[in-house]
């Protein structure tokens, strides 16, 4: 007995030590475990639930196979909300990225107080979503809001900004207000474009627009792609803004969200927490997961046509 025990320990330790990756695995284990428990497991769990008629409470659920998915294919409310979400993304993302680029170009000049302007444009992007919703509700308020007060001066309105069809535009405006986050990244990229390159082209007789279009934009295109991709992900999953902008103070009452801002995740939220259809809601989540995956791949593929990587940044990796 006594002779076996130390040998076992030694062999065990040697086996562990022989494995060269152990320190690496030890260090990355928080994330690996986190990924397994908080990403892979919930997604797998959601898939399992999507094959049931579970209502969140009752233990008397049963497997229904793909019935939830079949139902989803003819659920006009869900499909409409998906189309609305895609439309919102297709409008909001280009506006935010191009708007951020325009602001960055404006700030990338030899002007005084550039730092002050940059701060003013940037700060809205860090405002927490709840405060953002409260602030914009005060602006969009039909009678007391500043927006209609100004519009009245030019004999427009009053517009009921927070109900159909204007709620959609209100949501776009609110999203655009936060474009400063992207602007800061674009501005840093612009400052990294070598000035000699642009100056050489100007000397060669190119005009400013050509230089911008054919030198500056290609040089910063990886940064723009990053913003397009993250912007799409952020826009697709919008849920809180419509809930909080709706003329209700109770988040549970999803029904009061106007149709034009009833986005896909709002619909999912409604199926889960208003209709208690956990199975169906999970199926909606999985379909959305696949849609997002497809869109991301599509963007990555088509990006080869317009994103330009310098040899430098490849070597950097």
């Amino acid at each position: 007995m006594a002779a076996i025990a130390p040998e076992r320990v030694r062999r065990g330790r040697r086996g562990w030590k022989r494995y060269p990756s152990r320190t690496f695995y030890l260090f990355v284990s928080p994330w690996v475990l986190g990924f397994a428990l908080l990403t892979a497991l919930p997604l797998g769990y959601a898939f399992a639930v999507s094959l049931t008629n579970f209502n969140g409470v009752s233990e008397r659920w049963r497997w229904v196979g793909l019935r939830n998915y079949v139902e989803l294919m003819s659920d006009t409310a869900a499909i409409d909300s998906l189309v609305r979400t895609l439309a919102f993304t297709a409008i909001a993302v280009p506006l935010t990225v191009i708007g951020g680029l325009a602001l960055a170009v404006l700030l990338n000049q030899r002007l005084k107080a550039v730092g002050l302007f940059r701060t003013i444009f940037f700060l809205p992007s860090v405002v927490p979503v709840v405060a953002m919703a409260i602030m914009w509700k005060l602006i969009f308020n039909r009678d007391a809001g500043i927006l209609n007060t100004i519009l009245e001066k030019i004999s427009v309105g009053p517009i009921a900004w927070l109900v159909d069809p204007y709620a959609f535009y209100a949501l776009i405006i609110l999203t655009l207000w936060g474009l400063g986050g992207g602007m800061v990244i674009t501005l840093a990229a612009l400052q990294g474009v070598p000035a000699e390159l642009e100056e050489a082209a100007l000397v060669d007789g190119a005009n400013r627009w050509h230089v911008f279009r054919h030198i500056t934009v290609p040089m910063i295109s990886p940064v723009l792609l990053f913003q397009v991709v993250t912007g799409i992900i952020a826009a697709l999953q919008i849920i809180i803004q419509p809930l909080l902008l709706a003329q209700t103070n109770q988040v549970g009452r999803v029904a009061e969200v106007p149709e034009s801002t009833h986005l896909y995740m709002v619909q999912v939220y409604q199926e889960f927490f208003a209709n208690n259809r956990y199975g169906y809601g999970s199926a909606m989540l999985w379909v959305f997961f696949l849609v997002i995956l497809a869109i991301t791949l599509l963007v990555q593929r088509t990006s080869r046509l317009w994103v330009h990587y310098t040899v430098d940044s490849e070597a950097d990796r």
Binding site: Y45, A46, Q237, Y278, G281, I292
Partner: peptide, 29 residues
């Protein structure tokens, strides 16, 4: 250094692209 470091890192980067709301509701359940 570690075996499988590269694929793990790619996985990490791709989870940055995963909307958190997708996993949040099942996590809640």
């Amino acid at each position: 250094r570690g075996r499988g470091k590269r694929p793990l890192f790619v996985l990490l980067l791709s989870t940055m692209m995963l909307p958190q709301i997708l996993t949040l509701i099942p996590t809640y359940v």
